[in-house]
């Protein structure tokens, strides 16, 4: 067993797990943060995306021990009981999620993208979310939600694409 000390959603945690445990397995099974989803377990689907020191990572692809001493943010760390995070609010407002399994990963990937505080274009949003698979929505409303959240959080505007049909 390995003892791992890390910060999850702002709280100090110490966990004792076998050394081969992935960060995702530790979050879900030892710390009970089941918001991060186990989709493919090989880094294809992005449903397990969490932030480690502000960077979006597939929690199924890194070992829990690699997060030693680092700050991990999961979907549970975004909202409080009273208030949604602006990204969650934007996703809800445009009905960006259907079955919702990709949702925690999509939202965390969005947070990592918006936190970089760069001027974003729609294409860059599509690039940033291309590692998160979604079978229900066709991504269209998810991207709308990211655009809304970005504009709400940063106050910047993303130019709307010209409508094809008048």
């Amino acid at each position: 067993m390995t003892d791992i000390a890390l910060i999850v959603n702002g709280e100090n945690k110490t966990v004792s797990v076998p050394p081969e445990t992935t960060l995702l397995k530790m979050l879900r099974e030892n710390l009970n943060y089941t918001g991060s989803k186990l989709g493919c377990d090989v880094g294809d689907c992005g449903a397990c995306t969490v932030l480690v020191d502000g960077l979006a990572v597939n929690a199924c692809l890194i070992l829990a021990a690699q997060a030693e001493g680092k700050e991990v943010l999961t979907i549970e760390g975004l909202s409080t009981l009273e208030k949604y995070h602006p990204i969650q609010k934007a996703f809800e407002d445009v009905a960006a999620l259907q079955c919702g399994f990709c949702g925690p990963g999509m939202i965390m990937a969005t947070k990592a993208l918006i936190d970089q505080d760069q001027d974003l274009t729609k294409q860059e949003i599509k690039d940033a979310l291309s590692g998160n698979l979604c079978r229900c929505t066709g991504y269209t409303k998810i991207i709308e939600g990211v655009v809304d959240a970005y504009q709400e959080i940063t106050g910047k505007k993303i130019p709307a694409t010209k409508p094809r049909v008048a």
């Binding site: 291309s130 998160n132 991504y139 269209t140």
Partner: peptide
């Protein structure tokens, strides 16, 4: 048998939709 070689659309494959 996995999503590395069973290729499904990502956000980059989606066109503008009306």
């Amino acid at each position: 048998p996995n999503l590395t070689n069973y290729i499904m659309p990502t956000s980059l494959d989606m066109p503008e939709i009306d």
